[in-house]
Design a protein around this nucleic acid. Structure first.
Length: 285
DNA sequence: AAGCCCGACAACCGCATTTAC
DNA sequence: CGTAAATGCGGTTGTCGGGCT
């Protein structure tokens, strides 16, 4: 795949946008929409690349952007979602109407991370597995010894499982710690949990990634789907509420998100559910 | 007043994924 | 089905403004 020349080489402008440029972009998008970012700057008369235009619109100019400081509630939501989603900023942003992934990312690094560290509760970042911090770049290294995201998931499943099922996991798993120590998987926080006592017993197949039925494209029956979980009906949940600008977040994701929120947050939600949520988030079902 | 430092945030870069042909 | 283009995403950088010395 041939990479498009950068803006500079094309003689296009970079750096901060002027009010005039903003106005041109706003007027154009309001009039014609933004079906093709690549062609937009040329048609609108902007000396910018399409990527720059898109970024400016998405992060600053679109009408539903909520400006100003984050409320306490928004910050708490970010912290909670970050615990289960990691640095999936767009997914977090999709749950905060009017906020952009860029904005949330900045707030996280400039405010929340410091606050958490001050409180001694920054486990989610400090112990974030490499696969979540920079999975994209790391996965490009063929010789990397660091596990990929999917490999990380296997490790996490093994760590969380009351009864590990695979000897493949034994090298990275100390299951005895599950009930006696504080464990942080990087995705969820587990403190002194004996899940077999508190939560519904989950079949060991739950901890496996779904096997695909040949030629069907759907998970086989030995992987628990939503209908097999003792959850309230989807009808009782609020809609997913995707703001339309974030990633493709469907009702399933909304269901898990709502389950998380309604449960009162990370401390009270059964571990298995969070793992399942993470699985769905990764797969973008 | 000048210089330096640092926090905040807008913007960019590079890669992955999705879409179109 | 393969390839190229378009788009999305997350990490990083650049710039600006305010506070401090």
């Amino acid at each position: 795949m041939v990479r498009a020349p950068c803006c500079e080489k094309m003689g296009l402008k970079r750096g901060p946008w002027t009010p005039e440029e903003d106005q041109i972009l706003i007027s154009y998008v309001q009039k014609y929409g933004h079906s093709n970012w690549r062609a937009l700057p040329k048609q609108a008369g902007l000396q910018r690349c399409g990527k720059s235009c898109r970024l400016r619109w998405v992060n600053y100019l679109r009408p539903d952007i909520k400006r100003g400081n984050f409320s306490k509630e928004e910050e708490e939501t970010i912290i909670k979602l970050h615990e289960i989603l990691g640095n999936r900023w767009s997914a977090i942003a999709s749950r905060l109407p009017g906020r952009t992934d860029n904005e949330i990312k900045n707030v996280w690094h400039t405010h929340l991370l410091k606050r958490l560290k001050q409180n001694g509760e920054s486990k989610s970042q400090q112990h974030m597995p490499d696969c979540h911090l920079n999975d994209n770049k790391r996965s490009q290294s063929a010789n990397s010894t660091i596990p990929s995201l999917s490999e990380c998931k296997s490790i996490e499943y093994a760590q969380m499982s009351p009864q590990p099922t695979s000897s493949d996991h034994s090298s990275v798993t100390d299951t005895s710690a599950t009930t006696s120590e504080t464990i942080n998987t990087g995705l969820i926080k587990v403190e002194n949990i004996d899940s077999s006592e508190i939560y519904p017993v989950i079949d060991e197949d739950f901890w496996s990634e779904p096997e695909m039925v040949e030629n069907s494209g759907t998970p086989s029956s030995n992987f628990l789907d939503d209908s097999q979980f003792p959850f309230p009906s989807l009808d009782t949940m609020e809609p997913a509420g995707c703001n339309g600008y974030g990633p493709k977040v469907d009702d399933n994701m909304g269901f898990w998100y709502n389950l998380f929120i309604k449960s009162g947050g990370i401390e009270e939600l059964p571990v298995q559910y969070l793992q399942r949520y993470n699985y769905l988030a990764d797969e973008r079902i």
